[in-house]
Structure formats: structure tokens, C-alpha cells
Design a protein around this nucleic acid. Structure first.
Lengths: 243, 243
DNA sequence: TGCCTTTAAAATGTCAGACATTTAAATGTA
DNA sequence: TACATTTAAATGTCTGACATTTTAAAGGCA
């Protein structure tokens, strides 16, 4: 496990990279124990705090987990879907918000990806996913629901649609696209009329998925994209006028 | 910026979470300077090494960058597409390799997402993307190319296809799906015959994109998926027999 | 002997203080 | 004014110590 002194990075970053590479390249396998902090500081010829900083970097990426006590230490962590979701969503959300990504662009990406799932979702949907979709549609029709609640329910609905495709890799990849849109969607004030429109489209999507009619689902999804785009543009226009 | 003492996490993890939340929720904006390590250790009532561990966690996620010297410190980092790509690819690759994801499942996800890009790619492709695709096809036809080189070129080709859609959010989301497949693809030994088949299909895709014929591109892409699936299954079958 | 309790050891978690290094602003000088 | 020097503020690193957690082994008791 060698570090590259040429790079001008911090020692802790170099050490983290060396260990990370070992994990990525399979030289360290899942659940394998890393040397103790004291041993690592000897191996890399640095102090223990420096080693610890390196380990914290890896822990932040869920590449390792640590356990205290005798026979504890740092272990290569099996990256779970849940952890990966979290990482992906955080990164996606910040990427969009920090770079002032256009609502249209984000919207286009999200719906394009989502449409890619519909054929599989229509073919493989099981009662659980349908039940979730129906439940969320019902919630979205409640008059007392806040805008944030409406958006959150929208995300749950669409994630159920994606999950219905029965491909966990696809679900993981789309989690970022769907969830990262939420802050942008939260800027929209949903009137009773727009909620009604969305609920209608959601119902059409759920019906199409239940009927295993991929084409109908895709068409409804495309209409939903168009409608969402309009709502977003209205908000942007109103905002531009106020400033 | 409050920490939650109820959670049993490490202090450095709690502090990292508090700062991370402040960034995500927009309470700290891009390029804003964090308090110095000494000030943070006072604020959170912990020692400086603990604060540093927290900052390293955030740095590992590219949420902050640090600068030494007077008027240096830690700054909220504008997450660039490049950094986000790196994060996403690392996570995706490990997710697939550590969970022994089925070749078929990964393949299905990848091509489903890629097909979602083709209509936009056909509509918006510019000469640069086409040139990259042609160049990679040419490289793939070189007899001396190693299997790894062939795979790497394959990734470049497909990324050019995705980038041709002209939606950076889409490119970002797909980077994970395309790149994470590479280790799985690397297990395949590409014979002269299979390379020829792939080059033919790549050429059909490039031709279709150039002709702005989305349907033809999608059909060729679907054939490529089927063919890749066959190659993968052959490898798996051979591997099963050897064990 | 067998079970329970205690103890010891090993590891991470945290703290305190010191020094090294880097960087840019402030200062001094030709 | 332009350039070189100084200085201060910050991160980077090291040393050593102590606290806490956890498990395995040792020891005591019925």
C-alpha cells in the first residue's frame, strides 16, 4: 500500500486514497479488518491523528466502519443500497442546487429516466408497488396537505413507480434524479387546480401500470412532464417579474 | 448549529452532520468561509483534532475545500460536475462489486437508461460527439487493442452518446451506470468475432445518431444489449463450469 | 465440573499543547 | 511606484496522555 509523494495532497488524503484504491481494486475484501491505527501510523510513517483523519474520510464514504473495543478496529464495509442511496441523493441534490441547474434541464433528465423504467414496471409491477402508488394518490387528494407534504408524496409515488421495475440498480440510479428534484419542486405552490391535474395524471399512470400497458403509462408520464414544466416556468416567470 | 447528543454517534460525525445539514439546507452558501478550527472547537465544545476529523469527513464528500495560510480556512465548495461524477462512479462501482450484482441486472439498467438518452442525442448531437464516437469505433477495430483498452474505449463511446443528449444532469446520472459496468465488462474476453459484432453495432448507432434517426439508434442499442447479455452469460456459464 | 463474575488487554474516541508550513496582507525600502 | 521583507493567521502534523468500549481470558464459587 504505497502513497504517492509527488501529489501535493495532505498526508491524510494520500493515505485515504491508498486504502480506497486497495478496496476498489479488490485487494481488500468486504469485512476484512484494516490494521489498527497504531499499525497504520507505523506503516505509513505518520502520526495517529493523521491516520485517523484518513479513516474518517473513508468512513464518510461508507467505505469502512469502525468498532470500538478489543478485537475492534476498522473494517471494509459492504456498501448497502441504503447507504449508496444516501450518498447519491446528497450529491445529486447539492449538484443541482449549487450549480443553479435550470428547472427544465432537471425536469427533462428526471422524466427521461423515469420513462425508461415504465416498460419494466408495467411488466413486473407487484401488488405492493401498486398499493403504494394508490395510497400516495389518495394522500395527494387530501385538501389539508401542505405543499411540502404534496411534494414528498409525489416523490414516494414516483419511487414506487421506479421500484416496480424490479431492478435495484435502476432504482438506485433513479433515486438521485427523483429526490434531487424535490427542492426545485418545493418552490412551486400547488393550487387546488394543479393538484387535481397531477392526481389525474398519477391515476392514469397507476391504471396503466396495473393494466400492464407500458405505452399508456409512457404517454401519461410525458403529459405529466409537460405539465410540470409549465408549472415550473410559471414560477420562474413570476420570480423574474418580482426581481 | 446544534448537535444532537441523543444520537450515539462520534462527536466528529455529529459535528460533520450539523455542518452538512447547514450546507444542504442553504444556511451556508457556496464559497462562504467556515469558522476556523479553533473557533469551531469552541463553538462545539470539543478539541481541535475532533473538529478536524469532522472537516475531513466533509472534505471527502467535496462539501468543503480547505486553504492553508492567513485568510485561509475551510470554505463551502461548489460541487462541480467533475467531483460529483467521481463520487457517483466510486459509489456505483463499489455497490455493484460488493453486492455481487448480477450481470443481467446491471446490463438491463444501463441500457434502459442509455436508451432514454437516444431521442435527445439524435435531436441535439453536435459534430464533437460524433467525432468522438467515430474515433472510438476506429480504435475498437484495431487488432492490437487489449481487452481493457477495448472496454475503456467502449465506455468513452457510450459516454459520448450520452453527452450528445446535451443534458448535463442526464450525463451525470448515467456516468454511474455506464462506468460502474466496466469492471463487469472487463471480465469478458473479447474475441475478434465479438469485437467485430460490437463495432458493427456501434457504427449503426453512430450512423443513426448522425442521421438524427432516434428509432434506428434505439433498435441498434437494444440489439447491443442483447448481444452483451449473451457475452456475459457465456462468461458466467464458463465460470460456473470451472468451479 | 460448570457457570458466573471479575479482570485485563486491545482498540478506538477524545483532549491538550506544541511546532511546522503555507499564504497573503502589511510594512519597509530603494 | 515597485519590490523585498516581515508578520500574523490559519491549516497541517506530531507527541503523549487519558477515557471509553468491548471482548476474551482468568478466577471464584456452588
Amino acid at each position: 500500500m504505497k502513497t504517492d509523494p509527488k501529489s501535493k495532497a495532505d498526508l491524510s488524503a494520500q493515505i485515504a486514497k491508498a486504502i480506497r484504491d486497495a478496496i476498489i481494486e479488490g485487494r481488500m475484501i468486504v469485512d476484512e479488518r484494516l490494521p489498527s491505527e497504531a499499525e497504520l501510523s507505523e506503516q505509513f510513517n505518520v502520526s495517529r491523528p493523521t491516520v485517523r483523519e484518513a479513516l474518517k474520510r473513508l468512513a464518510a464514504q461508507s467505505l469502512i466502519r469502525t468498532q470500538r473495543g478489543a478485537f475492534g478496529g476498522a473494517f471494509v464495509n459492504r456498501l448497502s443500497y441504503e447507504e449508496a442511496y444516501g450518498q447519491h441523493i446528497t450529491t445529486s441534490t447539492l449538484l443541482l442546487s449549487m450549480n443553479g441547474v435550470n428547472f427544465d434541464v432537471a425536469c427533462e433528465a428526471r422524466y427521461a429516466l423515469e420513462r425508461a423504467c415504465t416498460p419494466m414496471a408495467a411488466a413486473r409491477r407487484d401488488p405492493d408497488h401498486l398499493a403504494t402508488m394508490r395510497a400516495e394518490i389518495h394522500r395527494q387528494a387530501q385538501p389539508g396537505l401542505s405543499d411540502e407534504g404534496f411534494c414528498a408524496s409525489d416523490v414516494t409515488f414516483h419511487r414506487a413507480l421506479v421500484d416496480a421495475a424490479g431492478n435495484p440498480v435502476l432504482s438506485y440510479q433513479l433515486a438521485g434524479a427523483v429526490e434531487a428534484m424535490q427542492p426545485l419542486m418545493n418552490m412551486i405552490t400547488f393550487t387546488a387546480r394543479s393538484r387535481g391535474e397531477i392526481v389525474t395524471l398519477h391515476t392514469r399512470i397507476a391504471d396503466a401500470i396495473e393494466a400492464r400497458d407500458a405505452d399508456a403509462a409512457e404517454i401519461a408520464l410525458r403529459e405529466l412532464e409537460t405539465y410540470t414544466l409549465h408549472l415550473g416556468r410559471d414560477v420562474m416567470a413570476a420570480r423574474a417579474q418580482n426581481s
